[in-house]
Design a protein around this nucleic acid. Structure first.
Length: 289
DNA sequence: CGGAGCTCCTGGGGGC
DNA sequence: TGCCCCCAGGAGCTCC
């Protein structure tokens, strides 16, 4: 949804100016904020693409490659959303957001593209892309389960080769992307699996169940978060409505499991929290972690 | 080299 | 009322 919104509002438009309000938001752009702004000015954006929490807008071939045929590599504006990042399309006269970090204005005088991020975990950078058009910092990120080209069999095989716990693997973006702490807990609950289940014990069938559960969670979240577009508001998180009504275990410590009524427990895991139903999701004997 | 743990950052909220 | 501290979380980094 976010990607679709950006397609609609940013593609084909030429950057008139880039303003970096907070240097930290472009810290991944090695050459600095001034370089980021200078190199972006005058460039035309193309359709948005996404992988995991990365989202990028390729730059139309311009004054990038000096000399060569310029066909094998290019550039893109790469956004990482962190946990609180948003890309907003806002009218030029809309008041600045409290946590406005970067503003792109366009030569057509139309709505601006604004990167807003409370905690500045995320950020923007101008990066090179590989021959496939993939930004180099994104090359190691796996596809997400809703991607038509996601490789189910490959995922199952990789999972079994791992020597770690199932939730740790679900959170590993090199294996599968798009699953954060909340979606992982929800998917594990649906599949009735414990977070510490050794990945080496995951059969092809069990992998399929986990993938199906993750897909169901993601689709449901998208359905609930995808309605706010028409107001020129591109909600990158897109999950707020989902959080309120649909969560089965996440954040529900002490509340009854929606399936069996047992009380949801909270456990510490990877320096954060994990929630599960103690009856539906029994800890395996050979728990990993 | 794979796995595990640490770290970044800020505002909301709970405790006193 | 006000202050302090905990907490959330993606993913790059470091260490083993």
């Amino acid at each position: 949804m976010v990607r679709r919104g950006l397609d609609r509002w940013a593609a084909g438009r030429t950057v008139a100016a880039a303003e970096v309000a907070h240097p930290r938001a472009v810290r991944r752009h090695a050459a600095g904020a001034a370089d980021f702004a200078a190199r972006l000015t005058g460039r035309t954006l193309a359709g948005a693409q996404r992988r995991g929490k990365y989202l990028w807008l390729p730059l139309a071939a311009g004054h990038a490659s000096a000399g060569g045929d310029g066909s094998d590599t290019g550039e893109a504006v790469l956004a990482h959303l962190g946990m609180s990042g948003q890309l907003l399309v806002r009218p030029v006269d809309a008041p600045d957001e409290v946590h406005l970090r970067v503003r792109l204005s366009f030569t057509d005088g139309g709505p601006e593209l604004r990167f807003v991020d409370q905690r500045t975990f995320g950020g923007l950078a101008l990066v090179d892309t590989d021959p496939a058009g993939l930004p180099l910092p994104v090359a190691h990120i796996a596809r997400d389960p809703l991607d038509p080209e996601f490789d189910d069999a490959g995922f199952a095989a990789s999972l079994r080769r791992r020597r770690t716990g199932l939730k740790r693997a679900l959170l590993d973006q090199t294996l599968v992307s798009g699953i954060g702490n909340i979606y992982a807990d929800e998917a594990l609950w649906r599949a009735r699996l414990h977070w510490a289940r050794p990945t080496s014990t995951m059969t092809r069938a069990r992998s399929a169940e986990v993938l199906a559960a993750a897909r169901a969670v993601m689709v449901e979240a998208l359905d609930h978060g995808g309605t706010s577009f028409d107001s020129l508001y591109v909600n990158v998180n897109g999950e707020s409505g989902y959080f309120d009504r649909e969560l089965a275990v996440y954040g529900r410590t002490g509340l009854p499991c929606r399936r069996c009524g047992a009380l949801v427990v909270r456990e510490h895991f990877m320096n954060r929290s994990s929630f599960r139903c103690p009856r539906c999701q029994r800890r395996p004997r050979d728990a990993h972690g």
